[in-house]
């Protein structure tokens, strides 16, 4: 990055114009250098996070496959097979919410051509959204999960203060998704709701507990998947930015050298 400054300073005919332009370009290159360093740190951080999430994902999936194998052993191979998948029109009960994050990198400093190129490099954040039995939605992400849990807790505390203990327990049971899948009546209730059904019902009303455990493991895996996807897009974006800035620095060096030659 210092190379273009050195090239300009070592030029034979140094005049005031060249000095002023070199000082301006040095300020710009310093700013770019700091920005590039920050992007490299972000890139390494995202890569580290991606690798950690990949490990957790592999663990959740292994657990899920083990539970499915156990369920198949106890229920029989014919009871857990793709032939039992429902092909009736139905909506997914777990969907992905995609949000485009604001590009903080571009907010600093004036935009030049290089930065305008980077506008095209978008960063997306993925989170899980569960369609609730009651028609509402639950958003689950690393940050969103904590927020929704705390808000739910605060609401429940208020009800506990004003209402009876029995109501609190009933509401708590409805809030807990895992408890929903444990209750046969509620599976039926889910199946009755339009277009959203519990896939456990495909394999019978009384399924192996291992299948429920497998369902939980794969739900955990889904949470890791959205994290991996977010980390992966961040890695991709920062990598593209570093590559673009490398190209522009290399291009500037070539231009300076071609100017210096005559």
């Amino acid at each position: 990055m210092e190379h273009d400054r050195i090239v300009q300073l070592t030029e034979g005919g140094v005049n005031e114009d060249s000095i002023s332009s070199s000082s301006t370009s040095s300020c710009v290159t310093d700013g770019k250098g700091t920005q590039e360093d920050a992007e490299i740190l972000r890139f390494l951080d995202a890569l580290d996070h991606l690798i950690c999430c990949r490990d957790s994902l592999a663990r959740s999936l292994s657990q899920g496959w083990m539970e499915i194998a156990s369920a198949r052993y106890s229920m029989g191979p014919a009871r857990i097979s793709q032939a039992l998948f429902s092909l009736k029109p139905q909506s997914a009960s777990t969907i992905i919410s995609v949000s485009e994050t604001e590009n903080s990198m571009l907010e600093t400093g004036p935009k030049d051509e290089e930065e305008q190129v980077c506008d095209a490099l978008q960063e997306f954040q993925f989170s899980i959204r569960n369609l609730d039995v009651k028609g509402g939605t639950k958003i689950k992400s690393r940050e969103g999960n904590i927020n929704s849990e705390t808000s739910a807790q605060s609401n429940l505390r208020q009800r506990h203060k004003s209402g009876s203990m029995k109501n609190h327990i009933v509401e708590d049971d409805f809030e807990n998704d895992d408890d929903l899948s444990n209750d046969g009546d509620l599976i039926q209730h889910r199946a009755d709701s339009p277009n959203v059904s519990d896939p456990l019902a495909w394999f019978g009303t009384l399924v192996s507990p291992h299948l429920r455990a497998a369902q939980k493991s794969f739900k955990d895996a889904l949470e890791m998947i959205v994290e991996v996807a977010t980390a992966q897009t961040r890695v991709q974006r920062t990598y593209d930015f570093i590559k673009e800035s490398d190209k522009s620095v290399h291009g500037a060096d070539v231009c300076n050298e071609s100017k210096a030659e005559p």
Binding site: I68, S86, K88, Q90, D198, P199, L200, A214, Q215, L222
Partner: peptide, 19 residues
């Protein structure tokens, strides 16, 4: 099959009206 079965159990399966 097992991976798809697991993720369908988690509720990601979607079938539209054209199946």
């Amino acid at each position: 099959e097992d991976t798809v079965t697991g993720f369908l159990l988690a509720g990601v399966g979607n079938v539209d009206i054209r199946r």
